[in-house]
Design a binder for these strands. Sequence first.
DNA 1: GTGGTCTAGACCACT
DNA 2: GTGGTCTAGACCACG
Lengths: 138, 138, 138, 138
Amino acid sequence: MRFSIQASSAEPIYRQIVEQVRRHVASGQSKAGDELPSVRALAQEHAINPMTVSKAYSLLEAEGLLERRRGMGMVIADVRPRGGRAPRLALLEPALRAAALQAAQLDLSATEAQTLFARCLREHGVTDDPTGPQERPE
Amino acid sequence: MRFSIQASSAEPIYRQIVEQVRRHVASGQSKAGDELPSVRALAQEHAINPMTVSKAYSLLEAEGLLERRRGMGMVIADVRPRGGRAPRLALLEPALRAAALQAAQLDLSATEAQTLFARCLREHGVTDDPTGPQERPE
Amino acid sequence: MRFSIQASSAEPIYRQIVEQVRRHVASGQSKAGDELPSVRALAQEHAINPMTVSKAYSLLEAEGLLERRRGMGMVIADVRPRGGRAPRLALLEPALRAAALQAAQLDLSATEAQTLFARCLREHGVTDDPTGPQERPE
Amino acid sequence: MRFSIQASSAEPIYRQIVEQVRRHVASGQSKAGDELPSVRALAQEHAINPMTVSKAYSLLEAEGLLERRRGMGMVIADVRPRGGRAPRLALLEPALRAAALQAAQLDLSATEAQTLFARCLREHGVTDDPTGPQERPE
DNA sequence: GTGGTCTAGACCACT
DNA sequence: GTGGTCTAGACCACG
């Protein structure tokens, strides 16, 4: 599993890790039993403090998303494989609700907002190319 | 001008105030000379610390968006009405970029993300109905 | 709220704090809105590192038992006032189950185990006196 | 001799083994000369690291409870059979003291705690059926 | 090798 | 004043 850490971001480093693991699991890119990079390895790779990584892992363990295999590192916990897209959309919704609120306060039109969003999606490589995990529409 | 303050939000209170004033002005819902609620009134109404309100107002004053009228509180400064959508869209873009990044990490399709966004916009009353402040060519 | 911290215990300090807050709330000795000692105050009182206290508070916040009042410290969250004894007994049960398992492996009789438990309860000031929390000999 | 190992427990695996052997011997269910499962057998049966089993056995050997018979594995050492209940009760007491402390902090009554303990004992098959060594307390 | 805990101290943000 | 974050380094426990 590859992490992208931005020390300059306003989002705390430990939280960047937490969120990325959550999304990685929710999107099915990580499955139960998959190993995570060791605290020390991840810390060294991104030149951050091991305790910062450890904090992120501990939170994920408390959340039940990770399991500690003593002496052997952390692995993705055996969370129920929640089939549909629904859980992933639920993770995205807060960000979109916040954006919609801002659009309302800015008195923009729906088309303006959606056109801008479409551009942002393209810039991040989000398309309708069905190459990802296949799932039945609900 | 009505404020919506959420003490439980991750966004600092003073920043919530700043952003809401910015959007209100950018969208033309507040015009030069409009008065803002007094520090004490706003603080009492939302049960927050007056210093927090004062900090927000001071930032906006430093930004040039507000002016301090002695004995009369703060009023919207005489900023040139910037007609176009461009500035308002620029204010919205960061939120949408963040959402697009999350959609990418969640491995969602563009259609899924936009369908959800459309729903969020509707829930916040954002439509294509041209009832808001019209764009005025200079 | 008074804390009893034993640095020599095998139980980590941050966990001692977490458990004591949990029990304090479960037993009704702390109610929603009650303030906790500040991180620095608690750290200084027991000569421990502020970060250790902060870790405990953060875990309790993630658990929903505490709320952060920004710039004003932590308070007991508005958890549903769970009336009965049932939740409190549930918190005690794991310890008693472990003890019962040990009694079984030691091939002790029920009376022997219960007599010993009765003595332990007395030593900790647990009686049937229905007058609320009494001072306990330490 | 049957072991019950829980990798998910907070108690270290090696310690689970040590404690179970101790109780087995203290209760007379294992006698001097009885063989223990081999390190490899025990490790394989519970899918744990052989070094973990070996560590437990070594501790017990250092304690004098086990003896290493070359080529024959470990056997229970020739410890004097200490007839009384006192040693066995002493092994149980720490668990009960911890439980009593929790009961005190939870502001439970003695009767509540003991009723719950009685149920836990029954669930583990601990009765007053006089199958073990009889003795009169005090 | 793994993660856990704690310390000491710095700096930041919010109220 | 409050808590949050991060660092650097130490020591421990486990496998």
